[in-house]
């Protein structure tokens, strides 16, 4: 690997990665960089437009119906979006990959049972399943992650299953078995590293989708509960004032759009390098 000289166009072509990275940094250091406490209400500064100043402090992106700073809430909302998306991708990916690999490698009745289960889960409308699950478990941060993992693991299972089928017949897997490796060792050492590329593509694309789903659930009131800032719930509460205070819904919307777009573009870039995974 050689060090490339810095080039502006190369730097700019990676813009989706920079957007994602700056959101991650902002979310990590949110308490240090926000101008206001995101939950502090100021009824004297309700529905103020971007740039409004009050006692020396500026509301750069305006304030909401309770006088909270939109920028601060946006930054705290990034924490929720990124954490929910990352954790649900990890959870659904782990479950789906395990199920898919087991079905593709063990074959026989475990294949039949597991893959029919995948088919069943894929045929249930995701939003319906989410509403039912939240109705049973109640809304909240952890439950949103569980709901998302529950609805999305079959995607990974499908891909992992197909890839495992393709790899399991390769001679090096046979040789590994001929060396006395246990099925788990064969899966972990010989199959997983050889199928992880396409799965990473799926995971990146799913990440964007998870951000959208979380926002959607929070918008419907099924996700993270107020007063915790979340982009979905910000848009939901701001929609009553959209004619007079557009900034409450507009800025979370733009943030959501940019995050999902960058995740998808990174996923596409990934899949160009690795081959098809979709």
């Amino acid at each position: 690997m050689t060090l490339k000289r810095f080039s502006l166009s190369g730097f700019l072509s990676l813009w989706p990665a920079w957007i994602l990275l700056s959101l991650v940094v902002a979310a990590l250091f949110a308490p240090a960089i926000v101008p206001f406490d995101p939950d502090r209400q100021n009824l004297l500064a309700r529905l103020k437009p971007p740039g409004f100043e009050s006692r020396g402090a500026a509301y750069f992106l305006g304030s909401d119906e309770l006088g909270r700073d939109v920028l601060s809430r946006l930054i705290y909302g990034a924490r929720i979006s990124l954490a929910v998306a990352a954790l649900s991708v990890i959870l659904s990916g782990a479950v789906g990959i395990l199920v898919g690999m087991a079905a593709g490698y063990l074959r026989g009745w475990s294949e039949t049972i597991l893959m029919r289960l995948v088919d069943i889960f894929l045929s249930i409308p995701a939003i319906l399943l989410a509403i039912i699950t939240v109705a049973v478990l109640g809304p909240g941060f952890i439950n949103v992650i569980l709901v998302l993992a529950l609805t999305r693991w079959p995607r990974y299972a499908r891909v992992a299953y197909g890839q495992t089928l393709a790899i399991a017949d390769r001679p090096f897997v046979q040789l590994a078995r001929a060396m006395g490796s246990s099925p788990w060792r064969v899966l972990a050492i010989h199959i997983l590293p050889n199928i992880i590329g396409p799965l990473m593509v799926v995971a990146t694309l799913e990440f964007g989708l998870m951000v959208l789903f979380e926002a959607g659930l929070s918008f419907l009131g099924l996700g993270v509960q107020p007063p915790t800032a979340s982009w979905g719930s910000m848009m939901s509460s701001g929609r009553n004032y959209i004619a007079t205070a557009w900034w409450i819904t507009m800025f979370p919307g733009i943030a959501l759009f940019l995050l999902v777009l960058s995740a998808n573009l990174i996923g596409d870039r990934f899949s160009d390098h690795i081959g098809d995974g979709k």
Binding site: R170, P171, F172, Q174, L175, A176, R177, A178, M179, G180, S181, S182, I189, H190, P193, N194
Partner: peptide, 25 residues
């Protein structure tokens, strides 16, 4: 029993040397 014997007491060599090795190890 088979796993104990395989690769230990009985070893095997395959026909295709390149594809019989894990490409990532």
């Amino acid at each position: 029993t088979l796993n104990r014997l395989r690769g230990n007491e009985i070893a095997m060599i395959f026909q295709e040397p390149v594809s019989s090795l894990n490409p990532l190890l």
